[in-house]
Amino acid sequence: MLNFTKLVQNEGIKIFTKIGSWVMIAFIPILVIAVALLCKYANEEELTVNNVWEFLDLCLSAIPNLMDIVTLFTIIVAAGIVASEFSGGTIKLLLIRPFSRSTILLSKFTTVLLFGLGLTLLLLVTTMFTGGMFFGWGGASELHAGAAFSNAAYSWRAIGYSGIELIVMVTLAFMFSSVFRASSMAIGISLFFLLTSGQLAYVLKQFEWSKFLIFANTNLLSYVDGRPLMASMSLSFSLLMLAGYQLLFLALAWYVFAKRDVSI
């Protein structure tokens, strides 16, 4: 366990020694403040915010929303964390250490998830503090518009469902990073799927079989809003599909990484 912790720490050091990682971290609060200023001084009805919970709702459920930015940043890290070892030649130094390939791969995946969790917590803390300062701290118990539960309950659901989508999309990017030796290719393909998944799901929803595609099931918040992609779909169905894809991506990533030949 101690050795695994050291591996995770080593992967974390690799991430935080890159200037790009700090740029991502700094960009989150800057963007939150920019959204707050826009809501405060814009005369647009759809940007009207009365309290911190409405601001949090806007940041989590708008299209696009700030959780998409967190997912985007985490995908960039996930898509390069394995592939960059091969493209940079450092995989040789990593594999001569007394750790199995499975342990090395798990440490990288754990590090990516922790990075995504850290960005998510930074987003939530910054959003709550900024929203409270700009719009007040009330409104938690008020009924959410179009829902049968409070603003606070809706926001926590939005956070949870966005977190599930983050994990699934990051695992997809991590799988691409393990399959492709070039980090640029892994990042490019991952970002393509992230940016086009919603459009692909909408275009293909006329076909009944499309509900089995991963991107038809990632928008879990649609069930809370009462707007599922298809009438035949349910929250439990989407969660089951996402769990299946999650296992598939991890299995494929492990198989390719474990079987790949590396000349040392």
Score class of each variant (00 low, 15 high):
12 G>H: 09
12 G>L: 05
12 G>R: 06
13 I>H: 06
14 K>V: 01
14 K>R: 02
15 I>Q: 04
15 I>H: 04
15 I>V: 08
15 I>M: 04
16 F>A: 05
17 T>V: 13
17 T>L: 10
18 K>N: 11
19 I>Q: 01
19 I>D: 04
19 I>L: 12
20 G>N: 09
20 G>W: 11
20 G>T: 11
21 S>K: 01
21 S>P: 06
21 S>W: 01
21 S>I: 00
21 S>R: 05
21 S>D: 03
22 W>G: 02
23 V>C: 03
23 V>E: 00
23 V>Y: 00
23 V>H: 00
23 V>N: 02
25 I>D: 03
25 I>W: 04
26 A>T: 02
26 A>D: 02
27 F>M: 08
27 F>V: 11
28 I>Y: 08
28 I>S: 01
28 I>E: 04
29 P>Y: 01
29 P>N: 03
29 P>M: 03
29 P>A: 02
30 I>P: 05
30 I>T: 09
31 L>R: 01
32 V>C: 07
32 V>F: 07
32 V>H: 04
33 I>Q: 11
33 I>W: 14
34 A>E: 09
34 A>W: 08
34 A>L: 15
34 A>V: 13
35 V>D: 15
35 V>T: 15
35 V>G: 13
36 A>T: 06
37 L>W: 09
38 L>W: 11
39 C>S: 15
39 C>H: 14
39 C>F: 07
40 K>N: 07
40 K>D: 12
41 Y>I: 04
41 Y>P: 03
42 A>H: 14
42 A>R: 13
42 A>S: 13
43 N>R: 11
43 N>E: 13
44 E>P: 01
44 E>N: 08
45 E>K: 12
46 E>W: 15
46 E>L: 14
46 E>P: 13
46 E>R: 14
46 E>Q: 12
46 E>K: 15
47 L>P: 07
48 T>P: 12
48 T>L: 12
48 T>I: 13
49 V>N: 00
49 V>K: 03
49 V>R: 00
50 N>K: 08
50 N>W: 03
51 N>A: 05
51 N>R: 05
51 N>S: 08
51 N>G: 06
51 N>I: 04
52 V>P: 07
